[in-house]
Simulated scan of single mutants.
Amino acid sequence: MNRVIPLQVSFGSIDNLIFPVILNDDSEMVLIDCGYIGSFELIKKAAMEVKVDLSKLTKIIITHHDHDHIGALGEFKKSYPNVKVISSFNEEKYISGREKSLRLQQAERIFKDIPDDKKEEALKFHEMLQAVKPVEVDICVKDKDTFDCCGGIEIIETPGHMPGHISVYLKESKTLVTGDAMVAESGKLCIANPQYTLDIEEARKSIEKFLQYDIEKIICYHGGICTERIKESIEQIVSK
């Protein structure tokens, strides 16, 4: 039996509500994105509440290297050392720590323009990004790569929010897991916050690729599940 299970995980406040996704079948269990630093136990608890035993985890797909998507990756790898970490080729160097996080580079670049009374808060953000533990990536993927497990998994390259961002299409259930390519706000699909999207026009072009797929459900890491007016909503985002 193949299952797609979005986990609802609250990290401190409603603003930090995230939706990692579990995929499983008789032989594989895959987690898509894994939360902030310190969210390992929260994700584990959320999984237990839906009767998912994370000790059976075999793979973790990382959509991109933002801290809220990879913060707990080091703890997952420590607890489940045999799990295989998957990312795009372009994201691997940041996840492994071989190059400085693009989000940290962005934060450092704009620091001089931040008002003095906000600089202390900004520096704490820098420290949080620097605290993310590097983890080696086991499998690098590119556009259209597939995995023959959990009903069929297809990788979609969706650069824009980050240059190496990927989304995941689940063939059997016709479900799209967007990472941060799109977010849901009150059930409405939107492009991710432009403030944190490194190339907004490229992000829009990436979203246009979703029109090629037969999608009945979308799971956004920020905002959760959308099932209504999917094609129309995507077309509206692309046309703006």
Rank of each mutant, 00 (worst) to 15 (best):
K205S: 13
Q212F: 07
K209H: 04
T227A: 03
Y213A: 13
T227R: 10
E202Q: 15
F210R: 04
E201Y: 09
C226V: 14
K209P: 13
K217D: 07
S239Y: 08
K231V: 14
K217N: 10
A203Q: 12
K231D: 11
Y221V: 04
K231F: 08
C220D: 04
T197W: 03
R204Y: 11
C226Q: 06
F210G: 02
E216C: 12
E201I: 04
I219C: 07
K205T: 09
I215C: 10
E208L: 10
I207R: 00
I225E: 08
Y213K: 07
F210Q: 02
I218V: 15
G224W: 02
I218P: 00
I230E: 08
T227W: 00
Y221C: 04
I237Q: 00
E201V: 07
I219H: 07
K209F: 05
T227F: 05
I237G: 00
I200M: 07
K231R: 14
R204Q: 08
A203H: 02
C220G: 03
D214T: 11
E216D: 15
I225S: 01
Q195F: 13
D214R: 12
S206E: 04
R229N: 14
K231W: 09
H222A: 04
T197D: 02
I218M: 07
Q212W: 05
Y196I: 09
K209E: 01
R229G: 06
Y221S: 05
C226E: 01
S239G: 08
I200Q: 08
F210C: 05
G224K: 03
L211F: 13
G223T: 02
L211P: 12
Y213E: 12
D199E: 13
G224C: 02
E201M: 13
D214L: 08
D214C: 12
S206I: 06
K205F: 14
C220A: 12
Y196V: 11
K217G: 08
Y196P: 03
R229D: 14
I219Y: 00
S239C: 13
E235C: 06
Q236I: 07
T227L: 06
E202R: 14
S233A: 10
I200H: 01
H222P: 04
K205E: 15
K217Y: 03
H222M: 11
E232G: 05
I207Q: 01
Q236N: 14
I215W: 12
E208A: 14
C220N: 04
S206P: 05
Q236K: 12
I237L: 02
E235M: 08
